[in-house]
Write a protein that binds this DNA or RNA. Structure first.
Length: 782
DNA sequence: CGTAGTTTTGTTTTT
DNA sequence: CAAAACTACG
């Protein structure tokens, strides 16, 4: 068939090998998604496999949607019936049908990280442990870690030696009990309980085994033990299991990903065929060379070498900035310059960083320069207070056993039900062995409530009323009812502030999302909506076609690619983070290196790296030296720039972070490399933005608007009158006096005609000399 | 019970 | 430095 002609030999081999266990080791940019997509199409078209007998597991919902679309394109109709989704949504779907077989209600609630933390916090209080040593976040992390290793509370208690460990195990035990009572599952439970269901109920298991005769798992290197178990059980019968992964891109060890799953796959499935995809179609030769070189420093890996037929491309840039604001400004200016020079849109650019906290400086700078941007992560739409509040109402309506949800909204909007009342209700509930909501329902029986009892009764009446409405209504209808009947809308309207308006807008957005869900085929009312919504990730709602520079963490960038990539904050202590530097375990540094490798291989055409010698971290200015990864780059493909011209002393003397006893520390050639690439055409001056660059950091924040929040699950910023349109001619010339909206008055010293715009150099009276693009700057002749 | 003010705490990374 | 959590007062 002709679809095979669109593949290389290896890819074709992978597509044609449909029966039995198959491990595809696919390097970055080697067309693995293409291979999977075609494989699904091939199964359907050539092997006459029914689409509903195929399951493909991806890492994000976004990847799932894209894959479904692509399969549709290649295979034509029928692809909707292929089960493409993430581990978590697959499990959620399975449990929605069969959770009752392991003692849960099928309308269980899914707890997100916040909810889990709240539950843990409650338990800590219940046990009256000092919140000092036992922070809810830490304990929640500990519990999640245990779950991912498939260690139950009993086992933890047995292994516990110190009293602290005993307490942790006890919290863990109670946490599990509580979730069960609340008919709630956390993210990890979705996997655990599904596996439990499969093991307990052979009927259910064989149902799904027969249903999913062909299973494919993408990003297999990031699966954890339970996910592996899940796959193992499902594939046990037909053994048509195809996993695709790259051990070099395993970056989720911290949440239980077990690299052994990929390294030992052949042991678990004897007779596995292994196919390697090593031709890279994405990046330039130089970028690939850098990536290969860096990753070769890792010991724990299956050796492979990516190659490409792509052109060599330009050198990779490495910039050393004096400060973090300087870095932000340098990166943004470089984006502006490149965008104009090449005449390419801003959505071809991505800025990647290690931690979400780093995004802010870039946001501020982008707003300052009036550049549209979109940011993934940071403030998840579904973790906004107003959204969580409304969601808590919906959860309460759907599943009254969800104590966390009920407690969240019992006094929102304010009903005069305070902490003491909640405590009394809580005690009453636990003494009687009923749920918190049930306790509310019999408020007059609860001792000591006084006049709060009446208020609680009114709350219960409200919930009952909403439940009645829920029986008749769609998800969107119920959401509307919640906003109106509870007085939530009214409260916000009366507040009459900008923030309240924004909240209302967000709530409106939630209603639209509910409506969208209602219109989806196979939608399943309120319960279905809640469960779907609980599993959306930040990256899922990213529209790559919208314009704007993309800002995200390196983790979020996995699976994506961009023409022009900037990786910022390449400093020891930031990337790799200080935690990994101190750990004596070399494997942590290796994971960071893989993360860097993932970042580097996102780039198609250009890659620009940067570090800031100083950076504000928890209130203090910290000095860092360059990341050890910078040292590992092959010098011949990197152009090392330095900021500030004559100031070549970026190196040696800054070492206040201290010396790390690890074998990775103190690279020999450090500091000498700058000379090699030095004296660049940029040295001495920022590419754009002139002499004032450094100074901005301190003063600009006063004049720059705060990054705005929007109604979507990623933040974005679109300048109101943003348009790149080269004017046919300019109203001013060299020597003229002009006025700029932010920089004030100045004299034009130079005008250069660039392909897409005029580049105007202006000597401002107050702000110094700046190079501006005419279309952006909107200079006025005076 | 609610608010305003104070103190404390903290940085990975995410489904 | 900022957000969250806690405390004391009205």
């Amino acid at each position: 068939m002709d679809l095979l002609n669109q593949l290389n030999d290896k890819q074709r081999e992978a597509v044609e090998c449909t029966e039995g266990p198959l491990l595809i080791l696919a390097g970055a940019g080697s067309g693995k998604t293409r291979a999977i997509t075609f494989r699904i199409a091939y199964l359907m078209a050539e092997k006459s496999v029914d689409p509903w007998n195929i399951m493909a597991i991806t890492f994000t919902n976004k990847a799932a949607n894209e894959m479904r679309e692509r399969v549709n394109k290649v295979a034509g109709m029928g692809a909707e019936a292929v089960w493409v989704s993430t581990f978590h949504s697959s499990c959620s779907r399975i449990l929605r049908r069969f959770a009752d077989r392991i003692g849960y209600g099928n309308n269980f609630t899914i707890y997100d990280t916040d909810d889990s933390r709240t539950a843990v916090k409650d338990i800590i209080k219940e046990l009256s442990l000092e919140t000092k040593k036992y922070s809810p976040a830490n304990i929640a992390r500990y519990i999640s870690g245990c779950k991912n290793r498939m260690t139950g509370p009993e086992e933890c208690a047995k292994d516990a030696r110190s009293p602290e460990e005993k307490n942790m195990a006890e919290i863990y035990r109670r946490y599990n009990d509580r979730l069960f009572k609340n008919n709630a599952l956390d993210f990890d439970d979705l996997l655990i309980k599904t596996v439990e269901l499969f093991k307990k109920d052979s009927e259910v298991l064989s149902y799904y085994q027969n249903r999913f005769r062909y299973i494919m798992v993408d990003e297999y290197q990031d699966t954890n033990r339970i996910q592996f178990e899940f796959v193992l059980l499902l594939a046990a019968k037909h053994k048509n299991i195809c996993v695709v992964g790259d051990d070099d891109q395993s970056i989720y060890k911290f949440r239980g990903a077990d690299i052994r799953n990929i390294l030992d796959f052949e042991k678990h499935f004897p007779g596995t065929k292994v196919i390697r995809l090593e031709q890279n179609y994405r990046s330039t030769g130089n970028i690939l060379k850098a990536a290969n070189e860096v990753i070769s420093n890792n010991v724990e890996r299956k050796s492979k070498k990516l190659w490409t037929e792509n052109e060599e491309g330009g050198l990779i840039d490495m910039f050393y900035y004096d400060s973090a604001p300087g870095e932000a400004s340098g990166v943004v200016n470089s984006i502006i310059k490149t965008s104009h020079a090449l005449g390419v849109p801003f959505h071809d650019f991505a800025v990647l960083y290690r931690t979400n906290a780093q995004s802010r400086l870039f946001e501020e700078q982008l707003i300052y320069e009036n550049i549209p941007y979109r940011i993934v992560g940071a403030v998840n739409f579904y973790s906004r207070k107003e959204i969580k509040d409304v969601m808590a109402y919906l959860k309460t309506i759907d599943n009254a056993r969800d104590d966390v949800a009920v407690k969240r909204i019992i006094n929102v909007p304010k009903r005069g039900i305070g902490g003491t009342s909640i405590e009394r209700l809580d005690r009453y509930a636990s003494e009687k062995g009923i749920s918190f909501y049930e306790a509310c329902a019999e408020a007059e029986e609860v001792p000591g409530l006084g006049r709060a009892a009446g208020k609680i009764e009114r709350f219960v009446t409200l919930i009952r009323k909403l439940r009645t409405i829920a029986k008749e209504e769609t998800a969107a209808g119920i959401t509307e009812a919640v906003i109106n009947e509870t007085g939530y809308r009214k409260e916000l309207e009366e507040e009459n502030t900008e923030e309240a308006a924004e909240r209302l807008e967000n709530i409106g957005e939630l209603v639209s999302k509910a409506r969208l869900y209602d219109e989806t085929e196979g939608s399943d009312g309120l319960s279905g909506f809640l469960q779907e919504v609980s599993l959306v990730a930040d990256i899922d709602s990213l529209d790559e076609n919208a314009d704007g520079v993309l800002l995200m963490t390196l983790h979020s960038a996995k699976g994506l690619e961009f023409d022009h990539v900037y990786i910022a904050g390449l400093e020891e202590g930031v990337f790799p983070g200080f935690r990994t530097l101190w750990g004596e375990d070399g494997s942590e540094i290796e994971e960071e290196r893989r993360l860097f490798y993932v970042g580097v291989t996102r780039a198609r055409k250009t890659l620009s790296l940067s570090m800031a010698k100083s950076r504000m971290m928890h209130g203090e200015t910290e000095w860092h030296r360059a990341s050890l990864f910078v040292e590992e780059l092959p010098a011949e493909v990197v152009h090392f720039h330095s900021e500030g011209g004559g100031r070549s002393s970026y190196g040696s003397s800054y070492g206040s972070t201290g010396r790390y006893g690890t074998s990775y520390g103190a690279p020999a050639g450090y500091g000498s490399r700058e000379g090699r690439g030095g004296g660049s055409q940029y040295s001495g001056r920022q590419p754009y933005g002139g002499s004032g660059t450094q100074g901005h950091g301190g003063t600009q924040s006063a004049q720059v608007p705060k990054p705005s929040r929007s109604a979507f699950s990623y933040k974005s910023f679109t300048p109101s009158e943003y348009k790149v349109q080269k004017a046919s001619s300019l109203s001013y010339g060299v020597g003229d006096r002009v006025k700029h909206v932010k920089f004030g008055e100045g004299t034009v010293t130079e005008i250069r005609n660039q392909p897409k715009d005029y580049e105007v150099t202006v000597d401002f009276d107050r702000a110094g000399t700046k190079r501006l693009f005419a279309a952006f700057a909107k200079l006025e002749k005076i």
